[in-house]
Amino acid sequence: MSDFPANADVVIVGLGGIVGASTVHHLIERGWTRIVGIDKSAIPTDIGSTSHASDFCYATSHDPMTCYTTMYSINFFAARDRYDRVGGLEVARVGDDERMEELKRKVTSGRAFGTRAHMIDAAEAKRRFPLLEEDVIQGALWDPDAGLVKPRSQVFSGELVDEAVATGHLSAWPNTACTGLIIEDGRIRGVETPRGRIEADYVVVCAGLWGRLIANMA
């Protein structure tokens, strides 16, 4: 194994998850060359959210950024043959008119933000998912682009990191936690780890649930 790096242009904290792996992929795609990635667990992660995620992508939301980022991710996975576009349903039971109106609002928002979601009746919902009891639902939201990352987003994360390492632009360090942030004159200057410090002009925190713990180090 090479010596632990003392400096980098950017350090990614949480390289082992899908967000960290995607971040390094896109940084290299945009010309970054001196990147160090660390993770407190394995790479790909064996304890983080990516390791036990449902791998289900569902784009329809009232939030334009959620719709955009999810559709971008779906197309990114699909372009690499890592996505099954099986479609997704949200149903409203008979008598739950409030739920039905909410689904209609979601469709309106989703279509305004670029998704292909639309409402379908109970018969169509049962045709798409035969286990449904048609007589107890009044309608459903159908998102044809919803689906699953295959075989797992955890596996895909590992592929992205391996590709990044192969370019020579990423130095990846599993089982290396961020134990502190180096801040000078109000600016980030690097990170502390049990292996030593890494000086860097930029630090990207991709630690998911643990992100706030790292933020509290500032």
Rank of each mutant, 00 (worst) to 15 (best):
E102P: 00
T108G: 04
I35K: 03
H25S: 14
H26D: 12
T60P: 01
V161D: 05
S41H: 14
A42C: 03
L170N: 08
K126C: 09
P64R: 09
R195A: 15
I12Q: 04
R197H: 05
A166G: 06
N175L: 13
G14Y: 10
R30T: 09
V11K: 00
S22Q: 03
E102Y: 11
I198E: 02
M1R: 11
V36K: 02
G110I: 13
K150N: 07
D96G: 00
A218W: 10
L141P: 02
A42H: 08
E90A: 11
C178D: 04
G95N: 11
S49Q: 10
C206K: 02
V149C: 14
N75C: 02
I28Q: 11
R187T: 10
I35G: 06
D145N: 15
R111I: 12
W173T: 07
F4C: 07
R152C: 00
R80I: 06
L209T: 09
F129E: 14
S73K: 02
I188N: 03
W32N: 04
A172N: 10
M119T: 07
A122Q: 06
L89P: 05
T108L: 14
V24C: 09
G190S: 12
F156H: 09
P174G: 06
V191T: 11
L131Y: 07
S41W: 13
R80W: 00
G110L: 14
G158D: 06
M217N: 03
S73E: 03
D96N: 14
W210D: 11
E124G: 06
G147Y: 06
T193K: 03
A177T: 13
L160H: 04
A177F: 04
R189V: 05
S51F: 13
D185W: 00
R93E: 14
S109C: 15
V203F: 07
T60H: 04
W210F: 13
F129Y: 14
T45C: 06
V91F: 10
E90M: 14
E98S: 14
Y202V: 14
A8Q: 07
D3H: 12
R195G: 07
A78Y: 02
N216V: 00
G211S: 13
F56A: 12
A164M: 07
A8L: 07
C67G: 07
S41F: 14
S73M: 12
T45G: 10
R116Q: 15
D135C: 04
R34I: 05
W32E: 11
T50C: 10
T179R: 10
E163G: 11
D39L: 05
G196I: 12
F76V: 01
G211L: 06
R189Y: 01
E192P: 03
G139K: 09
N7W: 00
R187N: 07
V155S: 03
I43K: 07
G211A: 13
Y72S: 08
T70E: 01
V205C: 14
V86Y: 12
V91N: 02
T50D: 09
R128Y: 04
G20L: 05
S2C: 02
R187G: 01
V13I: 15
A140R: 08
G190D: 09
G208M: 09
T45A: 06
G14R: 04
G48C: 05
T50H: 08
S2I: 07
D96K: 08
R187A: 12
P151I: 05
L131T: 15
